[in-house]
């Protein structure tokens, strides 16, 4: 149901990973993506995977939840892998038919690709599982601060993001309510052909849009009434602070990226 959307991905438990500084987690995700694309051999990728397994374990997120995040991209990944297997031209040919060739190298590359993409998806969902949207925007704002030098409106961007995130659950609730109200008046929202369904959306969409505009007006007025101006002199309720945990993780990332880079130059097992 729509209710599930309202909480986003965030999984509210207390854990080592949840307590990390959001800035560090965002940096970690970027470094991790760099690392898995730098990795050229299975050992390097295996190290990346092992690190992520530890990450998930320390985050106290049930394995089922993590695997569910993979499910969304499963088709895409398998499709890409199949294309890779069939079209990659390598030396050791197993099977050939017209333009299709299955080679050892092809199978290896697509296996690599599958693991890479899965790690990518799992790592990004680990970020959203363990970081509240608010912390995420705070972290992003802090990381983008250098852009202020070129007059980029960082604070405004972060404000827009957090308002948008804040309104998702409200509008999801509102949609639920309006859908219920129209269902009670006999609207059939989930049956019938395409044309009928599109027509059925109108009685939900119009009240929803109206309420979104009304809320935006009200919020604008409320901000005006409290003399909200730019972000120059604002202080934060929650200050982001680096702690010993963050230091450990920072060292880990640095080691990972360095290690993978070294292995790229001096491969342990050549593919």
């Amino acid at each position: 149901m729509l209710k599930d959307v309202s909480f986003g991905q965030y999984y509210p438990v207390r854990s080592f990973v949840h307590n990390l500084d959001p800035r560090l987690k965002i940096l970690f995700l970027i470094a991790y993506i760099v690392a898995i694309f730098l990795a050229k051999e299975f050992l390097a990728l295996g190290i990346c995977a092992a690190l992520l397994v530890f990450g998930v374990a320390f985050a106290h997120i049930p394995a089922g939840k993590v695997l569910r995040s993979v499910k969304g991209v499963l088709f895409l990944v398998l499709f890409t892998a199949a294309i890779n297997v069939l079209f990659y031209r390598g030396k050791t040919v197993y099977w050939e038919w017209g333009i299709f060739t299955v080679t050892f190298e092809g199978i290896m590359t697509s296996a690599f690709l599958v693991v890479r993409l899965f790690l990518l998806v799992i790592c990004s969902s680990l970020l959203t599982y363990t970081t509240t949207p608010v912390a995420l925007t705070d972290g992003l704002e802090s990381l983008l601060t250098p852009l202020k030098w070129i007059r980029f409106p960082v604070h405004e961007l972060a404000l827009i993001m957090s308002i948008a995130l804040r309104f998702i659950p409200i509008l999801a609730d509102e949609t639920d309510r309006i859908m219920n109200a129209q269902k009670a008046r006999g609207a059939e929202l989930d049956s019938g052909g395409l044309a009928k369904r599109i027509r059925a959306v109108v009685p939900v969409l119009i009240p929803l849009l109206l309420s979104a505009f009304r809320r935006a007006d009200e919020l604008g007025d409320a901000m005006d009434a409290r003399c909200y101006t730019d972000g120059k002199h604002r202080t934060k309720y929650k200050k982001l602070r680096f702690s010993w945990r963050d230091l450990i993780v920072f060292v880990l990332i640095a080691a990972l990226v360095a290690g993978v880079s070294v292995m790229r130059v001096y491969p342990v097992f050549a593919l």
Binding site: I178, N180, A181, A184, P203, P207, S211
Partner: peptide
């Protein structure tokens, strides 16, 4: 069973 929700005016659309 007719159902009138809270603030039913928010369901008007036509």
């Amino acid at each position: 069973v007719g159902m009138v929700f809270q603030y039913p005016e928010n369901q008007l659309f036509a």
